[in-house]
Design a protein around this nucleic acid. Structure first.
Length: 504
RNA sequence: GGAGCGUUGGUCAAGGGGUUAAGACACCUCCCUUUCACGGAGGAAUCACGGGUUCGAUUCCCGUACGCUCUACCA
């Protein structure tokens, strides 16, 4: 009973990696690492018509960015290779044949066209125990006919033969006992005409062969669970079946329903982990990474969508998540995705993390705007000064740019209404004072600035905003004198002068 | 249509037979700040509805409603 914990994420490489997909990975990973187990990635590429070049590599890039490194995968190798189902193709047929031999499956010769026609003719047609006797399969054909068709190489599939009226039940780790009546489940295709297995066969065979101990997947899989349970029973014994958990869905923020890429486009937030460019139409979809999320925040946010520690703690590092995670604290109901909350997590992580861990990304963002940052020390000072004001990495552009470059536009309109001769003279004097200043520390600057204001019978409050706008360009940013300190004497004086000539 | 799963404030959610039903995000008010944030204080729920069980139900049971997922030789 002390079986080694082994979990797997089994994506099909058909496009961008969705939020929900990453969360499924995350829960798998956290569960496994909490118990000292292995995390395996198996590529489910049995549908050759949906193959998308680059999708597999993209998935691994996303996992790496999130810090969810597999122990075994087509990329990382492992003792149960190959980890790509297309490369395991020859393996599956024998299990399907075995099922036929044991009376649990049968050959079906109906063509796709015939099935289509049938579906048009009969509403809600299902290939099942109630209809299979009217179809062309090894149950309705004689043994000789079947053998002849097979010998002739006629296209066929293998379908599971669902038993009549059996209660198929299993214990779901987050839902408790779940049960289905077998007579309501259709005869799913197990092996396709191209000899590739369908998901149903492949998942059972590979989970067995790869010694998977726990199988977690989205709730959308629940209705097909009875097929998988039966297959386990028929093929490998129910006692060897992994423990299942069907994760709640991530729903769209408005209305109901599964969150889709479309919703992100419509509502203006990312749904994929990283930028994804569809090779078919060159269409680019932005990811959380490129939108300016830190992986720590992305993972943290995802973990809290459907799970909580039962305490008031909301900010978790990966190590904390691993230590605290358990499946029985996963919520049953779906959760609507809230982009505002996602951004809040990112802001928290920006504040929490040492700025040097994301300074290169910020300097890259600045470089895109033509601002080259040569002084790394200054960059770190600036980032520390403004990080409380940033929720997404690109916010740093607005908050930090003026430290390195004179503002391109200055909001003169905000000063003008209350501007007068007295203030003009005051700032002219302030320039001289700053130029002569021996000390260049924020506190000293503030003190002398206020002294000068008092000497001129001016309230500092009327002067601070103009000064800010002269230095920053607008009504934002950290303390004015901290800014002056960091940009230095020459730059401070030159910015004041520039605006002063415009005003005067 | 059928099956399965779900339902605590706008959102994420804790709790679970007797509570003033936590906390967070968002929103509003106030404080702090002579900018904007950060931070601090305050503000909202007869726990979908109807029946039971019980001295007592948001919590347990059964219905109903609503929502979602699935119902492909896709995963």
């Amino acid at each position: 009973m002390s079986k080694k914990v082994r979990v797997r994420f089994a994506p099909s490489p058909t496009g961008g990696l969705h939020l929900g997909g990453v969360r499924t990975v995350l829960f798998n990973y956290l569960f496994a690492k909490n118990l000292g187990g292995d995390f395996i990635v198996r590529i489910e590429d049995t549908d050759q018509t949906r193959f998308v070049p680059g999708a597999e590599e993209y998935i691994f890039n996303c996992l790496q960015w999130c810090g969810l490194e597999p122990d075994e995968s087509p990329l990382h190798g492992g003792p149960y290779a190959p980890y790509r189902q297309s490369e395991r193709k020859p393996l599956y047929r024998q299990y399907a044949e075995q099922l036929i031999k044991d009376g649990y499956a049968y050959y079906a010769f109906d063509t796709a066209e015939e099935l289509d026609a049938k579906r048009k003719e009969v509403a809600n047609f299902q290939y099942s125990q109630h209809t299979r006797s009217g179809m062309r399969n090894s149950l309705t054909l004689s043994e000789a006919e079947t053998q002849q068709l097979l010998a002739d190489g006629v296209q066929h599939v293998i379908r599971i033969k669902m038993p009549a009226d059996v209660e198929v039940k299993f214990a779901d780790m987050i839902r408790g006992e779940v049960s289905f009546n077998s007579s309501l489940v259709d005869d799913k295709v197990l092996l396709k005409a191209d000899a590739m297995p369908t998901y149903h066969l492949a998942v059972v065979v590979d989970d067995y062969l790869m010694k998977i101990s726990h199988a977690f997947r989205g709730e959308e899989w629940l209705p097909s669970a009875p097929v998988h349970v039966l297959l386990w029973q028929y093929l490998f014994g129910i006692d060897n079946m992994p423990q299942w958990a069907h994760l709640p869905l991530i729903l769209k923020p408005d209305g109901n329903g599964k969150l889709s890429k479309r919703d992100g486009d419509r509502l203006g937030f990312p749904v994929f982990a990283m930028d994804w460019k569809d090779p078919k139409n060159e269409e680019m979809t932005t990811g959380f990474k490129e939108r300016g999320f830190l992986p720590e925040a992305f993972v943290n946010m995802l973990a809290m969508l459907g799970w909580n520690a039962g305490t008031e703690q909301e900010i978790f590092s990966m190590d904390e998540l691993i230590a605290k995670f358990s499946m029985d604290r996963v919520h049953k109901g779906g959760a609507k995705f809230d982009y505002e909350k996602a951004k809040w997590y990112n802001g928290e992580w920006i504040k929490k993390l040492d700025v040097s861990s994301f300074r290169f990304q910020v300097s890259g963002l600045l470089a895109e705007k033509g601002i080259v940052v040569a002084d790394d020390e200054k960059l770190i000072k600036v980032l520390n000064l403004v990080k409380d004001r940033c929720t997404l990495l690109p916010d740093f552009v607005q908050q930090a740019a003026f430290f390195f470059k004179q503002p391109e536009t200055v909001d003169i309109a905000a000063i003008q209404p209350k501007w007068d001769e007295k203030k003009q003279l005051f700032f002219a004097e302030a320039i001289r004072m700053f130029e002569q200043s021996a000390l260049w520390q924020a506190a000293d600057l503030e003190a002398s600035f206020k002294e000068l204001a008092a000497a001129n019978q001016l309230k500092p409050g009327e002067l601070m905003l103009p000064l800010r706008i002269m230095l920053v360009g607008g009504k934002f940013g950290p303390g004015v004198f901290e800014i002056a300190e960091l940009i230095g004497k020459a730059e401070t004086v030159s910015r004041i002068k520039a605006v002063l000539t415009e005003l005067g």
